[in-house]
Design a protein around this nucleic acid. Structure first.
Length: 486
RNA sequence: CGGGAUGUAGCGCAGCUUGGUUAGCGCGCCUCGUUCGGGACGAGGAGGUCGCCGGUUCGAAUCCGGCCAUCCCGACCA
């Protein structure tokens, strides 16, 4: 571990990597599992996942999708049916060779993603244009063998959702691909408070087996980009590999066009790295397990009255659908203040003997105005007024986090027209540059600067010119967003 | 798999160079008491096959050999 401050966590400003690792444990989000690359998601972290799941799942339902479950074990031969798909996943597969004490006739792959099993099932389920579209999502765990694991960001086993849809033609499938791409970007901003750079992956960064891949890329506070959700148009690649066909109105046999899209527990890592600070986590209110923490202060005779008042306030807030916790741990108030800040609780309400008679509370916001010692400026407010305005306050806090993250991103984004400028920019964030599109040139850039093309921004202004590295004509019609990435 | 480092209590570390009482320290944990508006204090207490295996020695956390694991840096990835 690095140099820890009085909170027991290396300050983010000093070493983001050490800060991240220590904070994940200290805030009780997760722990390492016994097997390398595995993680245990602890209740506080899992609650964030549940809140994320619920809100994302609602968006899937609103766009017409249904949930289903597909098996963990996939016959090895299935992976091999789609050439690029096998090639892409081969290095990170976990393979089961024995079962029931005997060697298996055919090894089973632990799913790294479910395109192949689902392809097989869609082959069985689809025969007519009347069966289309098929709009299914699955919440599950997948395994991709990792050489350098990091909790939430890159673990051998992780949780996610994978949507898999089948459509009659390319237009409809592309529409679906882009619809879910939009859902992810909207979700990231409106729930996780992270404004994303939206765009398409270059061929070299595309999903194994996809025709087109769309990604949302967040900027973390160490200047690295994090791919946070992807949506793929798979064309007829899997339909051909798994013989997924339907008869259209003219009695013609056609291949379906499929899509797939996913968001994972990595998103929790994005929340930590996009919002956190030296004091610890900063959780966006819509993902915060505890939105308001009430800290009763006082001992002896007053304690009971304070405690009653805290319970009363808790009930009023709960009645409004707010996630509240009375923090009556037997520690000093100062300890609890710091600990609640470490855990990223958006609003802290302090309630002591002084406030009782006045019918008021002190409210401290996790991110906001601070005094000269760097501590939150506390607002004195009447209990009823606080209760009446709490939802509004949380919404405003969400907006503040979005604005803060957007400002940070914009301050750490710039265009570059020569490799020297590019190399400097990529050390702090996104560098927008023209590129020739040659895979070999991407590799050269990566070798020289550690940066990779994150995406071709969807909203990029049209622009042509020489490639930032090799000078050949640019290909994408707009600047490419490059960054170092997780 | 290549390069670097580290394994001593739950966490962070000292002790090893120069072998020798009962292996220490801080934090955390437990008990009792006092405390409570920005990480309180006192007293008492629990917790260790010193990563594993072997060797040297009267004696090994310490010296030697092998192995294992983890972490960091590179090639792959949501």
């Amino acid at each position: 571990m690095g140099k820890q401050n009085e909170l027991g966590v290396t300050p983010m400003s000093e070493d983001v990597s050490a800060w991240y690792n220590e904070l994940v444990f200290k805030a009780e989000l997760a722990d390492r599992g016994p097997a390398k690359g595995t993680m245990v998601i602890r209740p506080y972290g899992y609650r964030i996942w549940e809140l994320l799941q619920a809100q994302l799942d609602q968006r899937f339902k609103d766009t017409g999708h249904e949930n289903a479950y597909f098996p963990l074990f996939i016959p090895q031969s299935y992976l091999q049916r789609e050439a690029e798909h096998v090639e892409g996943f081969a290095p990170e597969l976990a393979v089961v060779t024995h079962g029931g004490g005997k060697e298996l006739e055919e090894p089973l792959v632990v799913r790294p993603t479910s395109e192949t099993v689902i392809g097989e099932m869609y082959h069985r389920w689809i025969s007519s244009y009347r069966d289309l579209p098929v709009l299914i999502n699955a919440w599950n765990n997948v395994v991709r063998w990792e050489l350098r694991p990091r909790i939430f960001l890159r673990t051998t086993e992780f949780l996610w959702q994978e949507g898999h849809t089948a459509h009659a033609d390319e237009a409809e499938a592309m529409e679906e691909t882009l619809r879910m791409f939009d859902v992810y970007a909207e979700f990231a901003e409106n729930v996780a408070a992270i404004p994303m750079v939206k765009g398409e992956k270059t061929p070299g960064e595309r999903f194994a087996g996809a025709k087109r891949t769309f990604t949302i890329e967040g900027l973390m506070r160490d200047g690295k980009a994090l791919q946070s959700g992807t949506s793929h148009y798979l064309g007829t690649n899997f339909a051909e590999a798994f013989d997924i066909t339907y008869q259209d109105r003219e009695n013609q046999l056609r291949h379906v066009h499929t899509t797939s899209w996913g968001m994972s527990t990595r998103m929790i890592g994005a929340v930590i790295l996009a919002h956190g600070d030296d004091q610890g986590l900063v959780l966006p209110p819509r993902l915060a397990p505890v939105q308001v923490a009430i800290v009763p202060i006082g001992r002896g005779e007053q304690a009971e009255a304070v405690r009653d008042k805290a319970d009363e306030l808790r009930e009023k807030l709960t009645a409004q659908g707010i996630r509240v916790q009375v923090d009556d741990r037997d520690t000093s108030p100062g300890f609890r203040f710091n600990d609640l800040e470490l855990k990223g609780v958006p609003l802290r309400v302090e309630l002591g003997p002084r406030d009782l008679e006045a019918g008021q509370v002190l409210v401290a916001q996790r991110v906001g105005e601070v005094d000269e010692r760097g501590r939150a400026v506390k607002e004195t407010i009447g209990v009823d007024a606080f209760v009446a305005g709490v939802q509004e306050r949380l919404d405003a806090y969400h907006d503040l986090l979005v604005a803060r993250a957007r400002a940070y991103r914009d301050e750490h984004s710039a265009t570059a027209d020569d490799l020297a400028t590019f190399t400097e920019q990529v050390k702090v964030g996104f560098s927008y540059a023209l590129h020739c599109g040659q895979p070999g040139c991407e590799d050269e850039i990566k070798a020289a600067t550690a940066a990779t093309p994150r995406c071709i921004p969807s909203d990029g202004a049209p622009e042509e010119g020489p490639c930032v590295r090799c000078g050949e004509p640019s290909t994408y019609g707009t600047r490419v967003a490059f960054a170092r990435a997780y």
